[in-house]
């Protein structure tokens, strides 16, 4: 086939010229020996829904409603603040896990801990008057629970042991930091110590088993 307007050869099955949309005319091609390399039929797909965007819009709307209701009924926004702060927590614990791929299981646990820790700190300060309960019990217990989940994950996903070691080291370091803060403030340190001990001992066992892989991965992560 040929387009006499553009003066180009076209594929054997072309009915129109893709350049000018003129009807293709049956005539001898000027370039011999070429055959059309077909493309598959592709179904056009719109962008997938932007879950985070939908969630953010819903969260903002809920926050606005909560603040307005709180102002109207209680003349302050402390209850509304509770709702607003709990929304990221809801996202981290309920919605986000739906999209978790096993490769990033540990990373999501750490992100969830950050969200929950912030909520705990706020709750502790606003409702109980000081950060102590969150730093002494709440956050260390979260670390401990997360460490146990990651340790369980080592058995479920043996290929992910290097990632698990990294996550345990992050949790261990954070628990150790909490331990120092608690010691400086004269709070009890046993929960922090337990969390740090679990994290570091599990990481140490993994490091013993696969030290080269872990060192390699850490070198890659910290490469500058």
């Amino acid at each position: 086939m040929r387009c006499e307007k553009c003066k180009v050869d076209l594929g054997e099955e072309y009915k129109r010229c893709p350049l000018c949309a003129s009807p293709a005319e049956r005539s001898e091609p000027v370039i011999k020996g070429q055959r059309t390399a077909e493309y598959p039929d592709v179904v056009y797909k719109k962008n997938p829904p932007w879950y985070f965007g939908i969630y953010t819009a819903a969260a903002l709307a809920l926050s606005a409603i909560a603040v307005a209701a709180d102002c109207a009924v209680n003349k302050n926004i402390s209850n509304a603040a509770w709702v607003v702060l709990s929304l990221p927590c809801l996202w981290a614990l309920v919605f986000r896990p739906i999209f978790i791929k096993k490769l990033y299981f540990g990373s999501y646990i750490i992100r969830d801990i950050i969200c929950l820790s912030l909520i705990m700190l706020w709750y502790s300060k606003s409702r109980l008057g000081y950060f102590g309960p969150a730093i002494r019990f709440g956050i260390p217990l979260l670390h401990l629970a997360a460490a146990l989940v990651i340790v369980a994950g080592i058995f479920a996903f043996p290929k992910r042991r290097v990632n698990a070691a990294e996550h345990l080291m992050v949790l261990g370091s954070s628990s150790f930091l909490l331990l120092i803060i608690n010691m400086a403030n004269g709070y009890g340190t046993h929960w922090c110590a337990a969390a740090a001990a679990v994290c570091f001992s599990a990481a140490a066992v993994l490091a013993r088993v696969m030290s080269k892989e872990i060192c390699d991965k850490l070198a890659a992560r910290f490469n500058v």
């Binding site: 387009c3 180009v8 072309y14 129109r16 010229c17 893709p18 059309t36 390399a37 493309y39």
Partner: peptide, 14 residues
């Protein structure tokens, strides 16, 4: 110059 045109856009050539 001799030119042969092909496209991945099936709508444009059918």
């Amino acid at each position: 110059i001799r030119v042969r045109v092909e496209t991945s856009n099936k709508e444009a050539c059918s």
